[in-house]
């Protein structure tokens, strides 16, 4: 079966400075990829390039066989990729229900596995807070809302940046548990986080980025077998 997402020789630029230097990556259907590396190594740039939010990007990105390198972010979103950016980006002037309902859309094959009821089922806390404005939520609730909103688009791939940053440990556990549910649904994910131990528990593959390139790409077990890599690229 062809992979869901194929990235070849991706180079992304912010003005004259090059942030990605020929990244190659492939993500299978329903596969969960952990993306790790120090700050400034290009993790967020990679996610934003996939989403089409970096204007100057070269090389090739194919999603479900179709090239997306020249497409606009809204087209890419409609093709079945959902993005949960760092800082969440909850719409502050809309309440919880409005934030979720506005994103509702069937998936590309017409399935609607994710509905308002379903999101409330997996995030009961959002249900309790359903009438509250986006900015009246705690950081953890905003992250749940942001993930819930991404699910409402019934995507095939979710890009999750800094999944648990700044969240209380108990809330972070809920997010990790959520990733298991997402995987069980057959939705592929690329997750960026600092907590590489938790990532190793949930991910199928660990991808380490350094200086705008992929430094390692393999299973969590393979990464554990080479402790030098984490030491070099995460400073652990």
């Amino acid at each position: 079966m062809t992979p869901l997402l194929v990235i070849e020789n991706l180079r992304s630029f912010y003005g004259v400075s090059q942030a990605l230097h020929g990244v190659g990556l492939s993500v299978g259907r329903g596969e969960q990829i952990a993306l790790i590396g120090r700050n400034g190594m290009g993790k967020t740039t990679l996610l934003r390039s996939i989403m089409g939010l970096i204007h100057d990007r070269r090389g090739e990105i194919r999603f479900d066989g179709a090239s997306t390198i020249d497409r606009q972010p809204e087209d890419i979103a409609r093709a079945g990729i959902a993005y949960v950016p760092e800082g969440r980006g909850v719409f502050g002037s809309l309440d919880v229900v409005e934030n979720l309902v506005m994103a509702a859309r069937p998936g590309r094959d017409g399935h609607s596995n994710w509905t308002l009821e379903r999101v409330f089922e997996v995030f009961p806390r959002l249900h309790q807070r359903r009438g509250h404005g986006g900015l009246q939520l705690s950081g953890g609730e905003q992250q749940m809302l942001s993930i819930g909103r991404a699910l409402m688009t019934n995507p095939d791939l979710i890009l999750l940046d800094e999944a648990t940053e700044g969240l209380a440990p108990l809330i972070a556990q809920e997010i990790w548990a959520m990733l298991d549910i997402i995987r069980a649904e057959g939705i592929a994910t690329i997750v960026v986080d600092k907590d590489h131990r938790s990532l190793a528990r949930v991910a199928d593959r660990m991808v380490v980025m350094a200086k705008g390139e992929i430094a390692f790409d393999g299973t969590p077990a393979a990464l554990r077998a080479e402790p030098g890599i984490l030491e070099r690229h995460l400073g652990i």
């Binding site: 809204e74 409609r78 809309l94 909103r149 991404a150 688009t153």
Partner: peptide, 10 residues
């Protein structure tokens, strides 16, 4: 509220 976020939602 957030242009990039709205775009990313399609």
């Amino acid at each position: 509220d957030n242009e990039r976020r709205a775009l990313s939602l399609g």
